[in-house]
Amino acid sequence: MTRSRMIAESLVILALFALAALVFQQSATSLADQFANEGDAIENAALYPKALAYLLIALGCLQMLMIVRGFAPNGLSDKQEKTPKIEPETEAETEPQEQHKQQDSATGQKAIMASCLFIAYLLVLDPLGYHLASPAAMFAFFWLLGVRPLLKALVVAVLLSLTVALFFEVLLKVVLPLGLFNLALPI
């Protein structure tokens, strides 16, 4: 197991411990205020979550043990472990590796940008409304993921948004976010 992986795994375990701690904190405050952290199994709303919190802590400790056992005993750093000791024989062998690395970082960046775009879409969906936010967001997604030319991306984005709106607004009678301009399909 690499050092960065071990740190990431440990952080998840810490998050689980924090979650368990939150259960105890809520039991001692909010549930205590409602007189629901004591009494028999019917009255005690904290009984079952607390049992689960104990279980989560026990499992977290076990997993932590596994992480510690799985960590490379010679303490190799991430960089050392990833770097192969055997030198490539030919130039041709190094090229695909380089290409793969570049591709990985490019797709990784794309995934991050897509995630940011998705958050931005959720932020503007309510204030702008579905009929403004969705075509714009879909256009941005199509562009980001490689749909070219841009006109094609725009047409597909508008058509997709309209089809989904027709399905939900007309067939299922769902009121999609109207936004500041109160935009909805004229039906």
Binding site: A114, Y130, F141, F142, V147, L160, V164
Partner: peptide, 13 residues
Amino acid sequence: MYLVPMILLLSVI
């Protein structure tokens, strides 16, 4: 590149 935005939109709505 067409499929991913389509699924994201369906998921949100």
